[in-house]
Structures are given as structure tokens and as C-alpha cells.
């Protein structure tokens, strides 16, 4: 049961996007369409799981002082693998995510999990933690991109919702991304406070 907790915490209580507020660059930059959001979420989850397993495996062997460079090398390896796989099997998605695939390497969420969790926990627990965080990141990304794509472009997954609706362009541009995440975090803070008060 305690194992389950490691998985569930990333979904809501310690959601990387809304609660810990980490890994925002890709979250905001690629959330212009839901398909981008799903692609980035899956890619980041893959990197998280892969790097967490290996960081956890080498946790006793690597000396304290060089652990961060080692973690970075492991993460960069998985990022490149995901980049190559995406180019091979999903070229259109890889093109539309562009430079944000290699940028997963500097996503603070990934290094954060390696440092804060996987370097202190056994592999199985680390996998659960990575899966929870990855799925938490993915659903947050899907939510943000759904709001931005539907309001800013009038479509969801490329399918037009309504012809009569003239979408406000600014939602799909940079300010819309910042506004969306600001309001969502405020909303989640509000709900959490309300539930705690009960």
C-alpha cells in the first residue's frame, strides 16, 4: 500500500506542474496543441522512468561529489534515445516539438526526481515515483494544451469545435500560456485550501 503512495503522489498532491512548479519551459512552450502536449508528456515520462532506474541502480557506487554530472549524463542519454526514436517512428511529432525534445535534459523536474528521490530509493520504488510524476506531468500538459488549443485556435486535437466561434489568438501565443498556468495554479490552491478547511 505504501508503494502505491509513491505512485499516486505525483498525480495530485505533489504534481510537478501545479504543486511543485517545476519543468515549466516545455509545459508552456509546447502546449499550443493537445497532440504536442501528449507527445511531450510521453517523452518526458520515458526519460523520467529511464533515468530514475539507472540513478537508483548506481546510487551506492557513485561518489557524492560527482553524482550530479553522472545524473546529467544518464538523463542526456535517455533524452537522445527518445529524440532518435521519435524521429524514426513519429517524424511529424518530432518536428513540431522541435528543440523542446533535447530541452527535456534541462527540465528541472527530471533532475529534481533523480536527486530528491531516485538517488535515495531502490529501483522499483523509483520506477513508481517516475511513473506517477510522469503521468502527473502529462495530465497537466494535456489540460493546459486543451484549454489553449480550444480557446486560441478553436480546435481540439486538430478537429474544429465550432465554426461560429472566433478564437482569441492571444491564448495560443505566449501570454495565453502564462495566463492559463497562473489561473490553474490559483484555482488548485483555492480548492486545496477549501478542502483543508473542511
Amino acid at each position: 500500500m505504501k508503494m502505491m503512495g509513491e505512485f499516486v503522489k505525483g498525480l495530485w498532491r505533489e504534481n510537478p506542474t501545479f504543486r511543485i512548479v517545476l519543468g515549466l519551459c516545455p509545459t508552456l512552450a509546447v502546449s499550443t496543441s493537445v497532440s504536442n502536449g501528449i507527445g511531450m508528456g510521453v517523452a518526458a515520462t520515458f526519460v523520467l522512468v529511464g533515468s530514475n532506474i539507472f540513478v537508483s541502480l548506481i546510487r551506492g557506487i557513485v561518489p557524492e561529489k560527482v553524482r550530479i554530472p553522472c545524473f546529467i549524463v544518464i538523463i542526456a542519454t535517455f533524452v537522445t534515445i527518445v529524440d532518435l526514436l521519435m524521429k524514426a517512428y513519429a517524424p511529424a511529432l518530432s518536428r513540431s516539438l522541435g528543440m523542446f525534445v533535447p530541452l527535456i535534459v534541462v527540465n528541472c523536474m527530471v533532475l529534481g526526481r533523480a536527486e530528491a528521490f531516485a538517488s535515495k530509493a531502490p529501483p522499483f520504488k523509483s520506477i513508481l515515483d517516475a511513473l506517477g510524476m510522469g503521468i502527473g506531468f502529462t495530465w497537466a500538459l494535456i489540460l493546459i494544451s486543451a484549454i489553449r488549443e480550444s480557446l486560441g485556435n478553436g480546435t481540439i486535437l486538430g478537429i474544429t469545435i465550432s465554426r461560429s466561434f472566433e478564437p482569441p489568438l492571444f491564448m495560443i501565443l505566449a501570454p495565453g500560456a502564462l495566463l492559463t498556468i497562473g489561473i490553474l495554479i490559483a484555482l488548485i490552491n483555492y480548492l486545496t485550501m477549501k478542502w483543508k478547511a473542511k
Binding site: 557513485v62 561518489p63 560527482v66 554530472p69 549524463v73 542519454t77 534515445i81
Partner: peptide
């Protein structure tokens, strides 16, 4: 040495 080994392994995998 430690870092070198990890880099080498990473490069081989890539």
C-alpha cells in the same frame, strides 16, 4: 574515472 566510465557507457548506448 567514474565519470569517464559513465560517459563511455552513455556514448556506446547512444
Amino acid at each position: 574515472l567514474m565519470l569517464g566510465i559513465i560517459c563511455l557507457a552513455a556514448t556506446l548506448v547512444l
